[in-house]
Design a protein around this nucleic acid. Structure first.
Lengths: 139, 139
DNA sequence: CTTTCTGCAAAAGATTTGCAAATTT
DNA sequence: AAATTTGCAAATCTTTTGCAGAAAG
């Protein structure tokens, strides 16, 4: 796992310690095919590494976010989800019928980014978009 | 206030009652020039109509959302804000330096909506976008 | 051996709910 | 008069924090 090595080094470089808890949380988020809540990460952790506390999960997530490894998103209804950080721009499609949350690639958000940067002088760091509607399958 | 009349009728049509609390919450959200948290709405309410409970604010907001009058947005850090619902598509720009939250008109999101509808067969109800970066003033 | 991390328990914040009394229709 | 709505208090739910012992470097 190349990421594991990368993260180990990143942690040490910044003066943080490499702990099994951190590596496990990393592994779970990285191999997840979807967004996870802190609670879900905690449950997944219990299976392989029982005894890890939920507060540790939160602390680890905060650290990973600070390091730019993980991304946090707020969905409606107070749901907060975490996922491995990929590109700065990406969107989500939330199907209002089946409730599934899909990814939208960053290219779809390019026009918005460009419009803001070029014609209005904004400096854009990140674009997050959530589209609500009905997915092709549910129609 | 034309909206007041509209909302009164809407409430009655759906079997809800028209109460001073509801009208006051309505008025505060409608005349606000920005997004408000439940707490802020509650404070604003105290000035003109003391004694209204925070739980009533929450209940009223939930009702207005159900009726499609008010829109709820989740910002980072657990902040939930409410605003009067205008167009189905609109975005926000959050300046990471000054923290100000600005509106982005719906036209900026048209390309995204069209791409999803035309080339992928999604049925789009609403597009919400949050752009993070630095506003022209802060640069 | 020093500093950082963790688990535990408790705190904090935001939102929701049960219920009797007040208000609307 | 009947039904909904409110204020109050307490409950929930998620996230954060203080602290002593455990682990990492």
């Amino acid at each position: 796992m190349p990421h594991c090595v990368h993260v180990r080094r990143l942690l040490r470089e910044r003066g943080y310690r490499v702990t099994p808890q951190r590596l496990m949380v990393l592994e779970i988020i990285r191999t997840a095919d979807r967004h996870l809540t802190a609670e879900e990460i905690h449950s997944a952790l219990q299976e392989r590494y029982p005894g890890v506390d939920l507060s540790t999960v939160y602390r680890t997530l905060r650290l990973f976010i600070r390091l730019g490894l993980v991304e946090q998103r707020e969905l409606g209804g107070g749901r907060r989800v975490y996922e491995w950080r990929t590109q700065p721009d990406h969107g989500h499609f939330l199907c209002e019928r089946c409730g599934r949350l899909e990814h939208l690639e960053g290219a779809l958000l390019e026009p918005l980014r460009l419009a803001l940067e070029r014609t209005r002088g904004y400096q854009v760091h990140r674009v997050e978009a959530t589209v609500l509607g009905v997915c092709p399958t549910c129609q």
